[in-house]
Design a protein around this nucleic acid. Structure first.
Lengths: 332, 332
DNA sequence: CTGAAAGCGCTAACAA
DNA sequence: TTGTTAGCGCTTTCAG
C-alpha cells in the first residue's frame, strides 16, 4: 500500500494528528515541525488519500457536471471553462453526458449524489416532472448552465436567448425579408423554447405574422442543417433568409445552399447562433450571435462555490448579454 | 443527513450487514429478505454513499481521464467514447485537461491518484523525463489513448499515425506533386513525431528528398492553418499540395486559399487528418485520414478494465488502422 | 442465511 | 503547540 499519515508519524516521531495538520498547513503547528514533516512527506512520496479525507470532513472537493453532449463544441467549451475554474479552486470534475435524455439526467444526478459531490452544474432538459421534483428536494447546491428548467429559473445562468434571437429576426425583418426560414432546436431544451419565443416577439413587434411552415425542428446537429435545407429546397419552399438555432446547423445549411447553386448572402442571408470559433472560417464567414461559453462555465463554478460555502444563500437568475456578430453571410 | 444503512436496518429489523448485502445483491441473502430490504430502501430514498464504500473496499469505480484539450473536437469525441463505455461498466470519470503541458500532466496524475482512481486514461506528451519516471512506478493501471510516450509504448492504443501519414504523402507524390507543403503538429506529442516520420518514409520510399522549408510546425489549431497559410503565400512559397496535421488546420488552410484566389483541388490539393464529422461539410469537402475516435475511447476503457481486474496482465501496444477518405479537396 | 466486530485513512473535538 | 480519542458509513472477516 501507499505511504500514509501513520508512516510519516512513525518516522518523524510526531502523532498522526500533528502530521495531518502540518500537511494541511494548519497555523497552530510550529514552523520547524511543519517544515520537517513536509519535507519528510515529500521525500517518502506521500500522496494524501482524498477519499478518506472526504469521508471524515464530508466534503469531496468535487463537483458533478451533467452535460448534454460534450462532443458538441459549444458544450465542450463550456466544460473547459468549468474544468479550468474548478481546478483553480482546488475542485475536481466528475463528468456525465445525458444526450439530452431526461432519464439519463435523472440517473446522472442520483449517481453523482451517491458520490457525494459538493455541488452540481447541469445542462438540463426544460420540462420533466420527475426531474423537477428531484431538483426541488436535492439537498446539495446546483446551477443550470446556459439553460433553465421550468419552475426553477433562479438556479440558472442564462445568456439572453430570447433577446439574441429577437435581435436576429428584427434585423432580418427590418432589412426587408418577407419569408425567413427558421431551423429550430429540439423543443425539450429551454434554448429552443426561448429562441423561438424571441422569433415570435420580433414578428409581433414588427406587426407581422410568421408562417409556421417556415419553422422546422431539428436536433441541432450539423447533419440536420444540411438535410433539412436540402429537403426544404427540394420541396420548393421559398425564403430569402435562414436563421439557425446554432452554428453547427448553419454550417450544414451553407453546404446545402452552395451545392444548390444559391449565393450567400446575395440570394439568401444566413444567421447562426453561439459564435463558435469555427464560424469565422466557414465559407462565407458566418454571422452569428456570440455567447460567452468559457465565461459561462467559469461563472457557473463561481456561483456554485458561493452556494457551497453558504448553504443558505438565495438563488438568483444570472443573465449574460448576447451580442450579434455580423460577418459575411449577411449583407450588413 | 441522508438515510443510511443503519436507518434501514433499524426500520427492517435486520443488521446493517444484512442490509448492505441485500442492497448489493449478495446471493446468500434470502429472496424474501432481499426484496423487503430493497423495497424499504427505495421507499426511504436511500442513496448509497460511494465514498464510504470505496474507503473500505479500496475501489472507487472511478477512472481518471487526463485529456489534452477537450474543446478540440477530436479529443471531445474520444472523451465521449470513454465516458460512454465507462458508464456502461458502472464507472465514473474524473476529468482534467492539460493543454499539452507536461507539468499539468504530472500534477493531474498525482491529483487523480490522491483521489484513488482505479485506473487512468491519458493523452500524454511524448517525451518528458519527469513524467516518464512517474509512469514507470505508478502503482495503478494506465493506458495512453491515441498517443505514445517514449519508452512506454506498450501502454498505448494507437491508430497508425506513421502509416496514415505515409499513405497521404505517397498518394501526393505518386500523383506528381513536386512540392508539398506540410503543416505539422507540435513536436512534443507523438502524433506529430509519427506523422512526420510517415512523411519522411514516403519520400524515402519514392526515392525523393523532402525540402525542410516546406514543413512548418503549428499548435494544431484552426487559426494556425489560416495564419500559416497566409504567411506562406505572402512570402511566395511555392507548392501544389498541402498536407495538414489535422482537420482543424485544414479548415483554416481552405479559408486562406479561397481568400487568396486559389482553387482546391485544381490549383492545390489539400489533405486533412482525423476525419472529424465536420470535414464533409467544409468547402470543398475535405479529404482526410479517418481515425476511429469514439472507438478509441471505448477501447481504452475496455483495455484499462482488463488491467484493473488483473493487476498482473502484461501491457501490449494496440494498433488500429487508419483509412484514407478521398473527398473533394483531392483530385482522386 | 444472518450477525457482531473490526477497521479502511483521515479529520474533528477535546485535552493537555 | 501537540497528543488522544472517537468516528465518518460502509464492507470485510469471522462466527454462528
Amino acid at each position: 500500500m501507499n505511504v500514509k499519515l501513520a508512516d510519516i508519524a512513525r518516522v518523524t516521531g510526531f502523532s498522526i494528528n500533528t502530521v495531518s495538520r502540518a500537511l494541511r498547513g494548519d497555523s497552530r503547528i510550529s514552523g520547524q515541525t511543519s517544515r520537517l514533516i513536509c519535507s519528510k512527506a515529500e521525500e517518502m512520496g506521500y500522496i494524501r488519500n482524498e477519499v478518506a479525507g472526504s469521508m471524515r470532513s464530508s466534503r469531496t472537493n468535487t463537483i458533478g457536471v451533467v452535460s448534454a453532449d460534450s462532443s458538441n463544441p459549444f458544450f465542450a467549451e463550456v466544460l473547459l471553462g468549468i474544468e479550468d475554474a474548478a481546478r483553480k479552486m482546488n475542485y475536481s470534475i466528475l463528468l456525465i453526458n445525458t444526450e439530452e435524455q431526461a432519464e439519463n439526467e435523472y440517473d446522472a444526478v442520483k449517481l453523482l449524489i451517491g458520490r457525494q459531490v459538493d455541488g452540481l452544474i447541469i445542462i438540463p432538459v426544460f420540462d420533466d416532472p420527475k426531474n423537477l421534483s428531484m431538483y426541488e428536494s436535492l439537498g446539495i447546491p446546483y446551477i443550470f448552465a446556459g439553460r433553465r428548467v421550468k419552475g426553477l429559473e433562479a438556479h440558472s445562468i442564462l445568456h439572453g436567448d430570447e433577446e439574441g434571437s429577437s435581435e436576429v429576426f428584427s434585423y432580418l425583418l427590418e432589412t426587408g425579408h418577407e419569408r425567413i426560414f427558421y431551423l429550430a432546436g429540439p423543443d425539450r431544451i429551454s434554448n429552443s423554447v426561448d429562441r423561438l419565443e424571441g422569433m415570435k416577439r420580433a414578428f409581433r413587434e414588427k406587426g407581422r405574422a410568421f408562417d409556421a411552415d417556415l419553422v422546422v425542428e431539428t436536433r441541432g446537429h450539423i447533419d440536420d442543417g444540411y438535410s433539412e435545407m436540402n429537403r426544404a429546397l427540394n420541396k420548393g419552399l421559398e425564403f430569402t433568409a435562414v436563421a439557425c438555432f446554432n452554428d453547427l446547423i448553419a454550417m450544414g445549411v451553407l453546404k446545402s445552399l452552395y451545392e444548390n447553386g444559391l449565393c450567400v448572402p446575395e440570394d439568401i442571408e444566413v444567421f447562426g447562433y453561439d459564435n463558435l470559433n469555427m464560424a469565422q472560417y466557414m465559407q462565407p464567414r458566418l454571422s452569428s450571435v456570440d455567447v460567452p461559453k468559457a465565461r459561462l462555465g467559469q461563472a457557473a463554478v463561481e456561483e456554485l462555490m458561493l452556494h457551497i460555502e453558504d448553504g443558505n444563500r438565495p438563488y438568483n437568475t444570472l443573465e449574460m448579454k448576447p451580442r450579434l456578430v455580423f460577418r459575411e453571410t449577411t449583407k450588413r
